[in-house]
């Protein structure tokens, strides 16, 4: 072995050790976060079952999550519905010389997939970021420590209300998104191709069953859990002042979105296997 080869081999080994350290460091930090999130969920559920629910704070969080997110959800879903109808109408016009099944495809796509996912992503960006920034700021300004010293469990004080607000408001927002999206599709179909609204509605409702609605509804509950758990966990673990709050907020939104998209596949597989579709 030449001297050059030996040096290269040592460098390679050092690089490989460094990579191992980085990989294991990331893995440990992920598992640590998972453990903390599990403890937080357990504490939150115990608080809820013991009736330790801060009513006033829960109502104000419900207003924040539900009412204040409604305009953006309406706007996003209306345009999504229009885009879907436009795509389906254009494609079927090319194939059959007229827009057919526009209502069916728009309704199905929205109710089982786009409605829950789109709503969850909008709420993750709006509410998830706000939750992490609020809790994170409280953490770095020692307000969380102050809660402890004043005899209050921060989980009970901060997480329970946000948990309940997200869990109940996200499915409601999803239903709103579904309805508005379908209306968006109807608006485009009737105005662009002069299709009567009765035909559009019969296309929407003919193939849709209660199970189709339940499929999307179940997903939205899971997405709500992902958003609130990730947001609270990132908030409670914020460090390093204002910079840390910014980093935690970005990480919270990104992680929520990634987990929503990944879990969507597995949830869909499970629900299809259970014939809830």
């Amino acid at each position: 072995m030449t001297k050059k080869n030996i040096i290269q081999s040592i460098q390679l080994r050092l690089f490989s050790r460094k990579m191992d350290k980085v990989f294991f460091g990331k893995l440990v930090s992920f598992l640590e976060g998972l453990g903390q999130a599990t403890i937080m969920i357990a504490e939150t559920i115990v608080c809820i079952f013991r009736g330790h629910i801060p009513i006033k704070s829960t109502v104000s969080q419900m207003v924040e999550v539900g009412w204040r997110s409604t305009p953006i959800i309406i706007l996003a879903s209306f345009f999504t519905g229009m885009v879907l109808a436009l795509q389906v109408g254009s494609a079927t016009t090319n194939l059959f010389n007229e827009p057919v099944y526009v209502g069916t495809v728009t309704g199905f796509s929205l109710v089982i997939e786009l409605g829950p996912v789109l709503t969850a992503i909008v709420v993750a960006g709006r509410v998830g970021a706000a939750i992490t920034a609020q809790i994170g700021t409280m953490k770095v300004t020692e307000q969380i420590d102050a809660l402890y010293t004043l005899g209050t469990n921060p989980i009970k004080f901060l997480a329970v209300s946000r948990f309940l607000a997200c869990f109940f408001m996200l499915p409601i927002l999803t239903v709103i998104a579904n309805i508005i999206g379908i209306y968006g599709g109807m608006f485009l179909t009737t105005s662009l191709w002069d299709v009567p609204s009765s035909i559009y509605w019969s296309e929407v409702l003919d193939f849709m069953t209660v199970r189709t609605f339940i499929h999307g509804f179940i997903k939205s509950f899971f997405f709500a859990l992902i958003i609130v758990i990730v947001a609270c966990q990132k908030g409670f673990n914020t460090k390093n002042g204002a910079e840390g709050v910014g980093r935690a907020t970005t990480s919270s939104v990104m992680s929520s979105m990634v987990f929503i998209l990944i879990s969507d596949y597995f949830l869909t597989s499970l629900l299809v296997a259970l014939k809830i579709k």
Partner: peptide, 29 residues
């Protein structure tokens, strides 16, 4: 902890509460 009062370096007052609610917080709990 009930026996201990803690004065934080940056006061750590709760931003969302007013002065009354801040001082009353420990009394309520």
């Amino acid at each position: 902890q009930k026996k201990i009062g803690y004065v934080f370096q940056e006061a750590a007052l709760f931003d969302s509460f007013n002065v009354f609610e801040n001082v009353a917080f420990g009394l309520k709990n």
